[in-house]
Computed example of a mutant assay.
Amino acid sequence: MPLATRRTVLSAAAALTASAARAQERYPSRPVQIIVPWAPGGSTDILARTLAEPLRLSLGQPVLVENRSGASGNIGSLAVARAAPDGHTLLFGSMSTHAMNEALLKEMPFHGANDFSPIALLAYVLNTVVIHPSVPANTMAEFVAYCRANPGKVAYASAGAGSTNHICAAMLARMAGIEMVHVPYRGGAPAVLDTVSGQTQMLVSAGTQTLEHVRAGRLRLLAVTEGRRSTLLPDVPTVAETIPGYEMAVWYGAMGPRGMALDLVTRLNGEINRALALPAVRDRMSAIGVEVANMSAAEFAAVLRDDAQKWPGVIRDIGITPADA
């Protein structure tokens, strides 16, 4: 290559690199949109709105939260999957949408792990096993023994066939070798209310829905479903302490469209983790049973990938099919 031509090529390459760097430095160049694929008022929505202000301050642009609910979280998630991978459209999604829907819905418009750029694991939702006080059990071991002695007598509520609390309870029954009756409802609120009233006797659900009733004595807390005891309830055992191998850790994560630049993902990961570490944010989330996390983007990507591989098989093994859901 002639010397003059080589210099021209190198100069052009340097200019492109500098231009890309300047564009990256200017991020964000307009408001950042966080899409929550669920209705307003849920814990994912609360988390997004709690983080919006500290992120606005650190990013220097408005951070707008938009709820796009429907299709088990797929409508909002698909909108992000189709967005430009420039960091201006983000998703605050959940394990159910990205690791479970594939096995629960007959058609999926995206792949939960492959069609997104994992940015940060946001939080774990405290997930509780509760029973009506009329059930003669104070521990998970006593509850399992009671169910074995009374097959089919205990009915468990859920927010609907294929919901996370359905999967939790069905998996518990299968691993413990007990028989319970599933009573699906149209949403979590009626499932909780009927368990409180004694129409159903057992429920596995987020602490945001159950702990108020536990404190009032209307429900009895037996265990949490995570693989380790929660820092929010350190004296409450895990299900796995009675049923080895049982684990359901429900997480929320920040994601962008597939193809986001690594330096942009890294920057957003740092900004989000700094916001999550703020005492006001931690206290706000702890009050509703949500334990904030701190992971690199690579660590979150591994969690997402592992769960997307794990849960479809588990769901099939416990007999929940897309037709049921």
Rank of each mutant, 00 (worst) to 15 (best):
A18G: 12
L78W: 11
A52G: 06
S77L: 06
P234K: 02
H166G: 06
G245T: 07
R6W: 03
S158H: 01
R174D: 12
L55V: 04
A293L: 05
A277V: 01
S43P: 11
L276T: 05
S163H: 00
G245P: 04
G227D: 08
R148Y: 14
T139M: 13
L262V: 15
P54K: 04
N273M: 04
G70D: 06
T231D: 13
D115S: 07
G87N: 09
S19V: 10
L264D: 02
Q309H: 14
A169I: 09
P234G: 01
A99W: 02
P37N: 06
A81H: 06
R82N: 14
F143D: 12
L122Y: 09
S11F: 05
A120I: 09
A298W: 03
R284L: 03
H88Y: 07
V192I: 12
S43T: 15
F110S: 08
V192E: 01
A137G: 10
S197E: 10
A176I: 02
D86S: 04
S69I: 04
I75M: 12
G41S: 05
P312S: 05
Q309N: 14
P40T: 04
A52T: 05
L264N: 05
R30K: 14
A157I: 01
T44G: 13
S134P: 08
L3K: 14
L126N: 12
A287I: 03
L221K: 04
R228F: 11
A287N: 10
